[in-house]
Design a protein around this nucleic acid. Sequence first.
DNA 1: TTGACATATCGCGAGGTGTCGATATATTTA
DNA 2: TAAATATATCGACACCTCGCGATATGTCAA
Lengths: 113, 113
Amino acid sequence: MAANIKAQQQTKPPGTVRDFVDAAECLKTLAHPVRLRMVQLLLHGKYTVGEIAEDCEIQDNVASENLRLMQRCGFLASERVGRKVFYQIAEPHLAGLMNCIEGRFLTSAAKSR
Amino acid sequence: MAANIKAQQQTKPPGTVRDFVDAAECLKTLAHPVRLRMVQLLLHGKYTVGEIAEDCEIQDNVASENLRLMQRCGFLASERVGRKVFYQIAEPHLAGLMNCIEGRFLTSAAKSR
DNA sequence: TTGACATATCGCGAGGTGTCGATATATTTA
DNA sequence: TAAATATATCGACACCTCGCGATATGTCAA
């Protein structure tokens, strides 16, 4: 069974590249400094576009676009109250994902601030 | 204390957009169907460029480039053996991250395959 | 109704990403 | 040494992303 030496050493996980197309698309949406901060912020409560824009130090329309991107892939949901629009987390898995990301990338300096 | 109504409702997490610049860069590297599959594969053992290219159904040079990208941000390490080059996981956090990603995005169909 | 405020949308241009084909480098074998 | 194999690198091109300014839409208050 010389052909099976490899198979004995390691088992290839099931799945193909195609199975990761959706995941890649959503991760691409997440892979942006401003949007990561937005998610971190929204994991702690609802915020309006204006509040989020101020926190991220960007213009309101830029915040609006980035929030819409994340709404499109199901990460966020919005709710209009008067002339303000509140955004909040809509994807439960985001908490776990952000936890992994913060654990790996946020320096201790940023955490203790 | 009318100005503190908001503060009582929710606490803003520490950190700023700048703290996520590195995380975003690395996530961008991960946010690609081929590269996600590569990571999943390598979490189960070492593989050569040729083996990885075949699994992902891409050309060798394309595999080589994508692997190099992930090596640059510390995800992978390579080791030459003869004329072959084996790649393997170099970032311990990748296992946890992929776990989150698979849990959210891989359908039950892909998992049971 | 008019004006002010909050958010959303659009077109544009600069810069970045991914893939391909060709070529280069490294290693082994004949 | 020459040829074959495995991987890496490069230039070119198509495509995409991002933020900006301008403008549109929706909502409230006077």
